[in-house]
Design a protein around this nucleic acid. Structure first.
Lengths: 128, 128
DNA sequence: CCGCATCCTAAAGGATACTG
DNA sequence: CAGTATCCTTTAGGATGCGG
């Protein structure tokens, strides 16, 4: 391992089992984290509005996802002590940076979907 | 939903439950997919070499991950019919594009790790 | 060396019901 | 409205053993 490439140096430790950034990546890029952060990129959401936006997520998973992201400092939780309660979720500056990168990833993947579908058809074809 | 923002248009459907790109995103950005693609960014790997590189992954999960990525057209599988068998995995052009974006994400997250750790300490502190 | 197949355990995730 | 708690089902994932 020469490690003269600057990008290599930064990325190297993520391959180590015990690397703590793996856990953050799972929160951020996992099934629900990526969608929650992407949704919050267009502004603050209340709990149930966010739940409607991220179609298919259960109440439990949304709460769990938001807690993890709040703990990591990517999402801010603002509670107005009114009745009925009003809780707003929004991105922190770090959350915004990561969310923006995730949007780029989503955009990239969506742009390649025709090729992906073609590849899948080819793959499924050759072994049927 | 006005949908006049160009980035919004591209991203919108990922929030729909039935969107097929969600599945691709899970393969790509999931716990193991992100590491496999990132590892392959520095060239072709044989199965067991890749397994050593992605520390902690089991044989089963690596095989499963590589199959999914191969089916999606992101990873190419080259078999040399020698004995013992020699199988090399490498990125397709689309795989390279996505891998590069993932490396940027990893780099970004790793750069924010000090802040993330601080946020976690604060969070855990206030509720103990 | 590559990599299925099987079995089994642990964790993710959904549905429902209930509280401030 | 914004959750928490519980139960239950499904899936992820590790270990092991065999075959090409």
């Amino acid at each position: 391992m020469a490690a003269t490439d600057p990008i290599e140096d930064l990325v190297a430790d993520v391959f180590a089992r015990a690397c703590t950034s793996r856990g953050v990546l799972e929160n951020v890029a996992g099934k629900w984290g990526i969608l929650a952060l992407a949704a919050l990129s267009d502004g603050a959401y209340r709990f149930n509005a966010l739940r409607r936006r991220v179609d298919g997520i259960s109440e439990k998973m949304l709460a769990q996802t938001l807690h993890a992201l709040e703990r990591d400092g990517l999402v801010r939780r603002d509670v107005q002590g009114t009745i009925p309660p009003r809780v707003e979720y929004s991105l922190t500056p770090i959350g915004e940076k990561i969310s923006f990168k995730l949007l780029e990833l989503i955009e990239l993947v969506e742009g390649e979907m025709p090729e992906v579908h073609a590849a899948r058809a080819r793959y499924d074809d050759t072994r049927r």
